[in-house]
Design a protein around this nucleic acid. Structure first.
Lengths: 338, 338
DNA sequence: CTGAAAGCGCTTACAG
DNA sequence: CTGAAAGCGCTTACAG
């Protein structure tokens, strides 16, 4: 069943069928209607490969994330894919498992498939690959890759706004001794959140103690260990901001094991606002990263970039983050006594 | 940069280049080596669409799940995709959001892309779509779709083994009053787990009380409400098996709110063994569904089905489920007193 | 072992 | 508004 067969049955040329298929306005409405009917009757579906070969477009977008098992990503993938589907675009999806060299393979495979654009949401960076893709004139969108001066299309997620809201929230509750569980310094996003914490503390004129800044591995384990360290300090902090939710949950467990009640004895705030925040006890207050908004920007930018005949750098959207309050924060014990 | 260009530079015909590309043994090794060198030099990548158009294969597999936001799926997707990547196959991924009619669109889109096979992991069923795909002679693999008599390739996940282990575990601890939070009866998997519970109880010669079987909505809310109902019964159950982990977590919260300590006062067991089981307090004992094993079977079956010239029904793998013990189960209060 | 040539199923500039 | 024809970039049966 090919376009010739449809043409024969409809008593037109394959060119006309093709025009109907592509909703060309140059076809007489009656002819178009007739052809459409035959198409339905025959249950004809155009061959995508032939189409792509002819047009040079694939109606395929690539989406690369660090780790599909990280609950940060599903919502983002979901939204991106839903938008693509609306426009009859398919998505090829891959993940790097945080390995910069796997990014290269992922991108190469997508280029082989002749994708119309690639969105890369990885915490690791591989500048050579970005450059390579850019030179191939394949539309590219990145997230939080070294600021506004980059030549690549970029989406900027502002961690400062969320961190500021978090620290102000604690400050308003009466907290003065606030600790931070940082992540490994190798990742851009981790560094950005650390900076955001420092800025937010300064904003509230709160002093920072070195011993209250402990590094974790971004997993529950790391948060657990970091919290144990913090609990051994004297005086103890009355509140802790964590670089991500998984570490905040690890911290929650460590506090519980030490007989410390959250939030009565200690307030904890996470970062990411993963679905699991609502599942732990107490439900975790966390800085939300608007994943669906990010996905929407990425998709629209890719589409726009693809429509340009000459590649241009699109304006960088700046996305604010905000605190989502749940039940892991309260007044510090001291303030209660007072 | 196309195959002709490579042929010209290598002083051979495009047929020879093509043979080298496809590792045909009919090329003189020296020629092949020379051509390979030129290919590398020119950074040539064959056009996938042209290839697909010629060969009629796409090296593309479809993967459809109910809900990417459900933490059950990421591991499964991960494993499936990793296997595909090993063989240079790409995966087009989609999800139905539990709507049977969206399954039709998903499948149609994949057929349009000329996929070499489709794996469908949805809790909802759409027999017409399965039939349609089957008639198109596109290899298909389903999960737990009405038993061994189906004409479709199927993977059978045995909920009985896990449920039996769960009930025996509780029985051994001394529990006799065991409740069940069921799911909506519309889903095959939900019904299967309900049956598995009943069979496991019979296996341990434990009696079942109607009031100790409460239906939930598969989400935290439903588990929460169901547990509140169970706590209002008299006598109360000392242990609860839940149809899935999300409801088990809802139940955990409800117990906590009622001042009931898990596991000292009440044991809770979930189903699915999601990553979140390790994050809640106390960590949740749960029946594990071996997702990676399922993904492996699905992928291999699709590959095998595709290699057959005439469609055959492959043998149905039977996958056992097992209990993963954590900290939400203990001896019942009565047994302790004794 | 190698090449010339046909053809996979479309789209589109061109001619009418 | 419509059609004939070329061509997108490959692969493969056929001939040598």
């Amino acid at each position: 069943m090919d376009i010739q067969e449809v043409a024969r049955r409809a008593n037109v040329s394959s060119a006309t069928v093709s025009r109907v298929l592509n909703a060309s306005p140059k076809v007489r409405p009656a002819t178009a209607e007739h052809v459409r009917q035959i198409i339905t009757e025959l249950n004809y579906v155009p061959n995508t490969s032939a189409r792509n070969l002819r047009t040079g477009r694939s109606k395929l977008l690539g989406l690369i994330v660090s780790d599909i098992n990280n609950p940060f990503f599903p919502e983002l993938i979901d939204d991106f894919e839903a938008r693509a589907r609306e426009r009859n675009i398919d998505v090829i999806f891959s993940h790097t498992n945080y390995q910069p060299n796997r990014l290269e393979q992922c991108v190469q495979r997508m280029i082989d498939r002749n994708v119309d654009g690639i969105a890369i949401f990885t915490s690791e960076t591989n500048r050579e690959v970005f450059d390579f893709t850019h030179r191939q004139k394949i539309p590219l969108v990145l997230m939080n890759q070294d600021g506004p001066r980059t030549e690549f299309n970029n989406i900027f997620v502002d961690h400062d706004s969320g961190a500021t809201e978090a620290i102000r929230h604690l400050h308003t509750l009466g907290h003065r001794r606030i600790a931070f569980i940082s992540g490994p310094s190798g990742f851009d996003s981790t560094r950005a959140r650390h900076q955001a914490f420092l800025a937010a503390m300064a904003d509230c004129r709160l002093s920072i103690r070195d011993q209250w800044i402990v590094e974790g591995d971004l997993h529950m384990e790391g948060g657990h260990l970091a919290m144990q360290e913090l609990l051994a300090t004297s005086p103890r902090p009355t509140a802790v901001l964590c670089t991500n939710d998984l570490m905040a949950i690890g911290a929650l467990h460590a506090a519980h094991e030490a007989g410390i009640v959250v939030p009565a004895d200690l307030s904890i705030i996470g970062f990411d606002n993963l679905p699991v925040c609502a599942m732990v006890m107490p439900p975790l207050t966390s800085v939300d990263i608007p994943r669906r908004e990010i996905a929407a920007h990425a998709f629209n930018m890719l589409l726009k970039a693809f429509e340009q005949t000459t590649p241009v750098k699109l304006p960088t959207p700046r996305i604010k983050t905000h605190l989502t309050q749940r039940s892991s924060t309260a007044m510090p014990p001291k303030a209660k006594r007072a």
